[in-house]
Design a protein around this nucleic acid. Sequence first.
DNA 1: AAGTGGTCTAGACCACACC
DNA 2: GTGTGGTCTAGACCACTTA
Lengths: 242, 242
Amino acid sequence: MKTQNRSYREIAEVIKKRIENNEYPTNALIPKQVDLAEEFSVSRTTIAKALDILISRGFLYTRRGAGTFVTKSMVLSKQDFYVQDYIGLTNQFPDDTVTSKIILFEIVFPDEKVQSALNLKAEAPVYNIIRLRLLNGQNYMLEHTRMPVHLIKGLHLEILQKSIYKYIKETLQLTMSSAWRKIFADKPNEQDKKYLGCTETDPVMRVEQIVCLTDGEPFEYSITTRKYDQGSFIVIDQKSRC
Amino acid sequence: MKTQNRSYREIAEVIKKRIENNEYPTNALIPKQVDLAEEFSVSRTTIAKALDILISRGFLYTRRGAGTFVTKSMVLSKQDFYVQDYIGLTNQFPDDTVTSKIILFEIVFPDEKVQSALNLKAEAPVYNIIRLRLLNGQNYMLEHTRMPVHLIKGLHLEILQKSIYKYIKETLQLTMSSAWRKIFADKPNEQDKKYLGCTETDPVMRVEQIVCLTDGEPFEYSITTRKYDQGSFIVIDQKSRC
DNA sequence: AAGTGGTCTAGACCACACC
DNA sequence: GTGTGGTCTAGACCACTTA
């Protein structure tokens, strides 16, 4: 048997494009699973798995016995983004200029909080990085990052000015696969006031996150801070609850 | 063949309990899929599907070629909760007393925003509800809810004082299956100051959400507001990205 | 009654980790 | 090389909707 191998991810990608291109318009019934299976020359099981991705991302929903439908699309402001799909600021704004001003860059031993988050011993050194991220030249976000030196080798200033994630992916050939995120509102601290232009009454939104590689190893512990009016966080929630 | 039908959801539930009971301790390798398949008398495919749920919820992670491992558990404050699993305040705090003070309860015609969110025509009436939710007698959260009258029949004051979700589930026999949520920080408004005890410099956290039934029909559009120090939102993000 | 998605099976081959 | 998870197949039966 020839290996067609347009795997379920690729099929999901194709169907997603059809939704975006309005080939499958909002609220419309899309072709049934058997027809899609025939079109893509795969089994119905593979189609179901592809659709599962789009269902969990909120693009489709099903009614057993009736069919699969396109979800009514939500209009988002440009700055809003899907928390479950976040892979760095450079990726969030591909059409804008993202730059960074390095406020701190050093190598230190991790405190207990960081040891616990990154699963490290006290004697394993970590990068300690504070960056001000700018969007089209405007101060946008403060980012405090800790990464284990032994995992993220060879980090230097030039990389920090661009995208750390790009370096990890393209140069180190590492793939991130999961993240744990905590989102909360807070009062601005002195640093927020200085760099983000917050006044005493301007709330900030913080995201504390631990990001892991495909082997489950945590490589980033970070806290990012935005002024309250700089975008929202979108979360899609779908059944399969247990 | 006898129908064992401990479906993948039930198996996921059992394995989740084992993790919680430390039968499968943190960072440990759990039995391989073939062994689990044998134990539960199901095919390996069904086990894989069960594990997928726990992986997407962040309890497990896999390393191809090596095995399936228990994720390092994150210690959470009691008030923090998983956004992707939110099914109402009464469910979030099963061991506490959740009560409500009804601030507004009326039936109105929806404005454009609500029409759009709930997929309604201008002449379809909606409940317009504002509740102050109390946790163990303490003011905890403000909730502004709109629900279509034709879907959520027979709502009355007594229900509002307890749990609307319970009424929808148990009395109306409707099942919710998906939600779209937008999380953002904000300055407190007059109502927040009055009911949540916010001062001018106390940020609030708002969650705007649209919740749908299993047939994809939206039945709730709501905005909930908490004082910034009343808990955080946890989001787990896992591959299968497309 | 007919049609659609939901679930499950038994088996297969592949990619990757570990020895 | 051996063992593990990742993916896929072809087919089956069930649950639910629609008519």
